[in-house]
Structures are given as structure tokens and as C-alpha cells.
């Protein structure tokens, strides 16, 4: 019943709200070197729009890199020094729009929107100005100057594949044993349940690691995907995510009796959210609040943040420790619930 009625509702809501390439409430930072009346007006105008939220003001250029690495903001607006003076004397002033182009679509949209707002603004002030004042925008793309979409696709595809192989295959292979009745025989044997599960899971850990490596190598050699961060950190985070996915797979297998249920649960419950809510294709910040909240419980979201930060921005553990901790927490949670469910079944 849930599948019959719940799924269509869930899906239409997901697709309707989540699948939008528009941006909403994107966090940006401001570096205002001029701090005059004119820049204030512009900043007010930008924060008044529904598209942007000014998350913080920074004071020097060095901070740009660090706010991007933390992933808090998607763009930084830099107003040049003597903005108002330049505007009045030279008739033109410059604004730099620096975007985090690890997500090329979003970066593009952001700079377009900022441009539009600024143009609108110049229109307004030019009503009483002859000759026209000009505000020039300069766009700079951090991390992905050529706006290659492969930079988002490699981490995204890697996440999906790892989730698919680990969670789905594990849950299916364990429920398969249940269906065949071999699980019962294994449980009656002197093997400990723990050993049985590890035995089932081990091949998939192995497969997933190989998969991850292949995707990264292809990304690196064929598509010129940079690997800025520490390779060991990358490996560690990947193994962590694989473990999360596997524990989720085990959890699914404890609640489903047949391969079909396991398959449905994995596909509907994992694949769609991973694709839609992880921020892989559609920006999370543009989703309605409810979906944004829901996206927090999706392991893939955190892994995508981590892997993008490590791959493209060269982030180190001190920047992504929070996301890492969340994944660890989720893994522990999934395993704990599985063990509990499993015990109940025995009793």
C-alpha cells in the first residue's frame, strides 16, 4: 500500500520541488573594500532578492579560499576600493564575482543573476546620470575555470555507483540467502552471525574500492579531473562511505524478506534520493526547506560535499571533519539498528 500510494506522492513532490536549476537563497559572502554608500545600496539590493543570502562579510582576499573550502558560500562578491569615487569620476566601477565552480551550473547561474541585479541597479541610477555610469562585473571561477561538468559528474557518479554496488548488492545478496533457505543453514552452523555477515559483505567492499579507484583514475586521466587533496584522505573517506552504504545494505536486508523487497527498497529508497537530494544534480540550497532538512539524512549528500572538497579544493580533514563525523555516526547508527533488528528476529 505504501508503495502504491506513497511512492507517486513522494516522487511528484521530489521532482516538482527539487528538480529545478533555478537558484534560491544561495549563500554568498561579501568583500567590500570600499564600504561606501553606493556599495551599501548594491549589497542591500542583492540581499533583498530571494536568490541570495549574505552569509558573511570578509575583510581580505585571503579569506576567499577558506570560505570556499568550508563550503559555506557559493560565491564571493568583491567591491573594488574607492567604488563610489570611481563611479563618479571614471564613470565606471568594478565588481568581481568569484564563484565556486565545483558545481558549474550553479556557478553559471549565480554570475548571471548577479549580473542581472547589477544591470538593473545601473538602470535605476542612470535615470538622472549623463553620461551613463557603468558597473563592470568580472567573473572568476574558482576550482573549475573551464566549467567542466565532469567535475560534478565524477564525484556524483562515484557516489551513486558506490551506493548502488554496496547497499543494493549487499542487501540483495543477503536476502537471497534468506530466500534460498541457506541463511538458516548458515545460522545453524558453528559460524557466528557476525562472520556470516562479514563474509557476505567482504566481496562488495572489495568491488566498491576497485570501482571507486577506476572512476577516479578515469576522471583523472581521461577528463582531466584534478585531485588536489591528499590521496590517502580521499581513500579513507571513500572507504568510510562504502562502509556507510554497506551498513545501510545490511539494514535493508534485515527488514526485507525477499530479494524483490530489498531491490525495491534500495532503488526507491536509495537511488532516487541519492540522485535528487544529494546535491549531485540539483542544488540543495534552492530546494524548499523541508527537502533541505530531509537531504541531511542522506549519506550521499555528505559524501559529495567531502569528495568535492577533497578532489577540487584540496581540503584537509580539519575542514571536512564535520561531514566525516556525520558519516561515521550514520554508519554506527545503521549497524546498531541492524544488530537490534537481527536480535529481535532471533528471539
Amino acid at each position: 500500500m505504501f508503495i502504491l500510494f506513497g511512492m507517486p506522492i513522494a516522487q511528484i513532490m521530489l521532482f516538482g520541488f527539487a528538480i529545478t536549476n533555478e537558484i534560491n537563497n544561495v549563500n554568498i559572502a561579501i568583500l567590500d573594500k570600499s564600504k561606501d554608500a553606493e556599495t551599501h545600496k548594491i549589497i542591500n539590493k542583492i540581499s533583498a532578492s530571494a536568490y541570495f543570502k549574505i552569509n558573511q562579510e570578509i575583510t581580505n582576499e585571503k579569506q576567499i579560499e577558506s570560505v570556499f573550502k568550508k563550503g559555506k558560500v557559493k560565491a564571493v562578491l568583491v567591491f573594488e576600493k574607492n567604488f563610489i569615487k570611481n563611479l563618479q569620476t571614471l564613470k565606471q566601477a568594478k565588481v568581481q564575482v568569484i564563484t565556486d565552480a565545483t558545481d558549474p551550473n550553479v556557478a553559471n547561474t549565480i554570475s548571471n543573476y548577479v549580473n542581472a541585479i547589477l544591470q538593473n541597479y545601473t538602470h535605476e541610477i542612470n535615470k538622472n546620470n549623463k553620461p551613463n555610469h557603468q558597473i563592470q562585473t568580472q567573473t572568476r571561477l574558482y576550482y573549475n575555470p573551464e566549467l567542466k561538468s565532469v567535475f560534478t559528474f565524477v564525484p556524483g557518479v562515484m557516489t551513486i555507483i558506490l551506493m548502488l554496488v554496496s547497499a543494493m548488492m549487499t542487501s540483495i545478496s543477503i536476502t537471497r540467502e534468506k530466500e534460498l533457505g541457506t541463511m538458516e543453514v548458515l545460522l545453524v552452523s558453528p559460524l557466528k552471525p557476525f562472520q556470516v555477515i562479514v563474509g557476505k559483505v567482504f566481496p562488495y567492499i572489495f568491488l566498491s574500492i576497485i570501482n571507486a579507484a577506476i572512476i577516479l583514475l578515469l576522471g583523472f586521466f581521461v577528463f582531466g579531473m584534478p585531485i588536489e587533496g591528499n590521496i590517502f584522505l580521499l581513500a579513507f573517506e571513500s572507504v568510510l562511505f562504502i562502509t556507510t552504504a554497506l551498513s545501510l545494505g545490511i539494514l535493508i536486508s534485515t527488514v526485507s524478506q525477499t530479494q524483490q523487497t530489498a531491490m525495491m527498497l534500495s532503488l526507491m529508497g536509495l537511488m532516487l534520493p541519492v540522485i535528487i537530494l544529494s546535491g549531485f544534480i540539483f542544488p540543495i540550497s534552492s530546494m524548499p526547506l523541508l527537502l533541505q532538512v530531509i537531504s541531511n539524512i542522506i549519506p550521499a549528500k555528505w559524501f559529495i560535499i567531502i569528495i568535492k572538497a577533497v578532489l577540487l579544493k584540496g581540503a584537509t580533514l580539519d575542514v571536512i571533519w564535520k561531514e566525516t563525523l556525520i558519516l561515521v555516526g550514520m554508519t554506527v547508527f545503521f549497524i546498531a539498528v541492524s544488530i537490534k533488528k537481527y536480535k529481535i528476529r532471533l528471539e
Partner: peptide, 28 residues
């Protein structure tokens, strides 16, 4: 103890020899 369940419970996609080896193996 030995146990034979209601459902036929060996691995259909392994050969007879492999099944025997496997079950022998898990009983040490």
C-alpha cells in the same frame, strides 16, 4: 548437530562438489 531445513538449502549456482566443500568448510 546437523540440520536440514524444510526448504532445500544448498547453493543452486554452485556444483555438487563446491557445495560439499563449502559446507564442509564452515563446519571446520
Amino acid at each position: 548437530i546437523g540440520y536440514m531445513s524444510q526448504k532445500f538449502s544448498m547453493y543452486d549456482d554452485l556444483t555438487i562438489k563446491e557445495n560439499i566443500t563449502f559446507f564442509g568448510g564452515i563446519y571446520g
